[in-house]
């Protein structure tokens, strides 16, 4: 377990927990992601994938949020 496992948010498994790493993002998406709580250092939990496999639902800052895989790809997560 000493090895750090790092993946994009879009590839996390259901019920997997992680911590958001510093990720590079620009423009409006950046504002939106930060405002919705996807800030580096935060804990995140993968809740489920939509019936059509996209988008995904995650729990962050104590609430539930859905995000498309396209956007979730950008966010790097360290599994804990």
């Amino acid at each position: 377990m000493s090895e750090k496992k790092i993946l994009p948010l879009s590839e996390m498994q259901t019920n997997q927990k992680g911590r958001i790493r510093t990720y590079s993002v620009q423009g409006l998406l950046k504002q939106k992601l930060y405002n919705m709580g996807f800030v580096p250092g935060s804990e995140i939990l993968m809740v489920r994938t939509a019936p059509l496999m996209d988008p995904i639902e995650v729990m962050i800052q104590n609430y539930f949020v859905t995000i498309r895989k396209d956007e979730a790809k950008i966010i790097e997560v360290e599994v804990i």
Partner: peptide
């Protein structure tokens, strides 16, 4: 277009 990031209240 907007990124799809939406709360599920």
């Amino acid at each position: 277009t907007a990124p799809f990031v939406m709360e599920l209240p």
